[in-house]
Design a protein around this nucleic acid. Structure first.
Lengths: 119, 119
DNA sequence: TTAACTGTTGGATATCTGTCCAACAGTCTC
DNA sequence: GAGACTGTTGGACAGATATCCAACAGTTAA
């Protein structure tokens, strides 16, 4: 029951702080996760699928938490999986043009094509 | 002689990395300095004039160095002063729209009106 | 030349952070 | 229920960082 899962805690739109957002993105791993989430909702947090095979699962979990607490992502817990998506609308409302500029700037960082939402 | 001063070392445009830029701006003090420099070239690094009276001068010097080494600012040393300005053209060329979006987002962080370049 | 001024550098320190590991909780499958 | 699976949490630890202070170098002024 409750198939929709529960939402992990995240800051309110009005409480999203620019400095914290930039701090969260000021790490290569999280910047990559940000670019990945921007391609669509992700439902598999395993390091391998995210192209972060070299990182321990708890490390990836840590980075996802930082992103969520900064207000960048929303996470829904369903069963043993986590559905993570970018809070695009919230971010656009709060910081117009920022996400778009960041994604443009982040293009070509790595090969992100392999990481589009599967099927 | 050499009244123009010398330029402190800074990365080449092509070497400016997004993650480093965001890391540099992911600190409240440096985000404030960024917004200040965006209003025009600054030629006084004293904490007081920058609205950072609570910080030691060596701390401010440290933050300015981080901004410069990330590729965000240019610094010219003339006499005992430092003329710091945002590398707006370089940043716009490398990350189109990013600076504009950041400045829009940073508006209203504090009262920056008092810090426009004096006379 | 002596003194004041601006900013840098190195040391010290407390805090933060990225990473791994082990243990755990909840979930799914057999 | 037993075991496999996904992800979280707490501990440990090395490295980074923000801050201050003292000392210094170069510059300007008296």
């Amino acid at each position: 029951m409750d198939n929709d899962g529960e939402w992990l805690p995240q800051p309110d739109v009005a409480d999203i702080q620019l400095a914290k957002v930039l701090h969260a993105l000021g790490d290569p791993v999280r910047l990559r996760l940000f670019a990945i989430y921007a391609t669509g909702e992700q439902y598999d947090c395993s390091s391998e699928r995210l192209g972060l095979g070299h990182l321990h699962k708890s490390t990836v979990s840590h980075h996802m938490r930082v992103l969520r607490e900064a207000g960048l992502t929303s996470t829904r817990a369903v069963g043993r999986n986590r559905y993570v998506r970018l809070r695009r609308a919230d971010l656009d409302a709060r910081f117009p043009g920022l996400v778009k500029a960041l994604l443009t700037a982040a293009e070509g960082l790595d090969d992100l094509d392999d990481l589009k939402p599967a099927d």
